[in-house]
Simulated scan of single mutants.
Amino acid sequence: MTDLAGQILILTGPPGSGKTTTAQALASEPGAPAVHLHADDFWHFIKNGAIAPYLAEAHHQNMVVIDVLVSAVQAYARGGYFVILDGIVGPWFLAPFRALALPVHYVVLRPLLAAAIERCRLRGGDTLSDPEPITALHRQFSDLGALERHVIATEGQDRAAMLAAVREAVAGGRFRLAS
């Protein structure tokens, strides 16, 4: 893979799209030193007063978490790491990432809704499995306007194919965000 030291990849999409699986595999590949930041962890760090991030009343909390994420990705990238941030980072959160004086790639994985719901259901544990917010989040990623060119449809792709598609998108630079 191309040397991506000092660059940032935001790997996003609705729940159940394969973000974490793809990010873990990408971060483990040979090449530049890499950091995988799982955005969900940053929301889970809030122990008292946490609000489900998909609720409207979580706006202030979400902006604080995004600010922390921006600081973390920036520090790692400036330290010479390829930073892979995986999480639900919709276009509504991109402004502070665009302001960074670093290359930022934005890749949206888009599964079919039924596949996303089923994958979330099968994960178990303390993860989102309620079809209602999964459907709402899927809808928010279904028409990205000018950012539609940042989408990789995952239907019919296995893990290896998705990883290859993301690798190619980042290496080619065609998914870079404009400042």
Rank of each mutant, 00 (worst) to 15 (best):
M1Y: 09
T2V: 14
L4G: 01
Q7W: 11
Q7V: 00
T12R: 03
T12C: 10
G13C: 09
G13L: 09
P14K: 11
T20Y: 04
T21P: 00
P30K: 01
P30M: 02
G31M: 01
A32I: 02
L37K: 05
A39M: 13
I46K: 10
K47F: 01
N48A: 13
G49Q: 10
A50K: 10
A50C: 03
I51K: 00
P53A: 02
Y54R: 04
Y54W: 15
L55A: 04
E57L: 14
A58C: 07
H59R: 14
H60M: 12
V64L: 15
V64E: 09
I66M: 04
D67Y: 07
D67G: 15
L69S: 03
L69D: 05
A72Q: 15
A72P: 01
A72T: 13
V73H: 08
Q74G: 08
A75W: 15
V83W: 13
I84Y: 00
G87I: 05
G90K: 07
G90V: 00
W92Q: 11
W92M: 02
F93D: 09
A95W: 04
P96F: 09
A99R: 06
L102K: 02
P103L: 03
P103C: 02
V104T: 00
V104W: 07
H105D: 08
V107E: 03
V108I: 13
R110E: 15
L112F: 05
L113E: 02
A114L: 02
R119Q: 05
R121I: 01
R123C: 12
G124T: 06
D126L: 08
D130C: 06
E132C: 07
E132Y: 13
E132D: 12
T135R: 15
T135F: 05
A136H: 11
L137V: 01
R139M: 08
R139F: 03
Q140S: 14
F141G: 02
S142D: 15
D143Y: 04
D143L: 07
L144T: 08
L144A: 04
G145E: 10
G145F: 06
A146M: 04
L147T: 06
V151T: 09
I152N: 06
T154L: 07
G156Y: 01
G156D: 03
G156E: 01
Q157N: 11
R159N: 12
A160I: 03
A160S: 14
M162V: 14
L163W: 09
L163T: 03
A164R: 11
A164L: 12
V166T: 01
E168A: 13
G172D: 08
G173F: 08
G173W: 00
R174W: 14
R174V: 10
R176P: 06
R176C: 05
R176K: 06
